[in-house]
Computed example of a mutant assay.
Amino acid sequence: MTVAPDNAQQGASRQYRAMRDFLEVMDDTLPGKFEITREGIVHDMREPVGPHELTTLHLRKRLERVMPEDLVAHTGRPDVEAELEGIMRRPDVMVIAWADMDVPGSFDPQTLIAAIEVVSRSNPDNDWVTKLRDYSLIGVPVYAIFDPRTGTGAVLTGIHPTPDGPRYATRKNFVYGEDVTIADWTISTNGLPRYRSQESERPGH
């Protein structure tokens, strides 16, 4: 009988819970947003204001105009958590049923209909690379990315197995001004704000 994999899994689980306990203490004492990924704790110092926050608000309102009343485009807490994978994320917008929000603690990622992220200008790889990997790994069926740096984005769907784990099979790129379909609902991207090219990088952009 082999016990090493179980021991390794238990060790990883203990490590994850230690990080989770740390964040419960620190999350309200330090600025920014904390998440846990395969590489460890991610501390995003930005405080989303300006184009980032406005984009989030536009997307929430546009989606809720076209979605059924039993669904919501939720922003803010709680997190989306898959402890077995060692991942805890907090999407900018989560499309989820009201009924699936009535749970203690974090949301089950597989109850999300879609996760939406607005790219941070200071750390774009967090949205375009690591979150793309993490959301497919934990079973979020649709991942949409809006990038105010370039006025472009993408919608990722069709999770399928690969040698590196579950990954999205289909990517549909778009440019601001086009309509974009997220899950079953199509919204306009007209008028979404952009980061100003002459604007110096500050936390929050």
Rank of each mutant, 00 (worst) to 15 (best):
T2E: 15
V3M: 11
V3F: 15
A12P: 05
A12K: 15
Q15R: 14
R20N: 06
E24K: 10
D28W: 11
L30D: 05
G32I: 13
G32D: 13
D44Y: 07
D44A: 12
E47H: 12
V49L: 09
G50K: 00
E53T: 03
K61L: 14
R62K: 10
R65E: 14
M67I: 02
M67V: 04
P68W: 04
L71C: 06
V72N: 00
R77W: 07
P78D: 05
M88V: 13
R90V: 12
D92C: 06
D92L: 08
A97T: 07
A99W: 03
M101S: 11
D102A: 15
P104L: 12
S106A: 15
A114M: 06
A114V: 09
E117A: 13
R121A: 15
P124Y: 06
W128N: 00
V129T: 14
V140P: 05
P141W: 04
V142K: 02
V142A: 03
Y143H: 05
A154N: 03
T157F: 08
G158W: 10
H160L: 05
T162E: 12
D164A: 12
G165T: 04
G165N: 01
A169S: 14
F174Y: 00
V175S: 13
G177I: 00
G177R: 00
V180I: 08
V180H: 01
T186D: 14
T189M: 06
L192V: 08
R194D: 11
Y195F: 15
R196M: 10
Q198F: 02
S200I: 10
S200F: 08
P203F: 07
H205S: 14
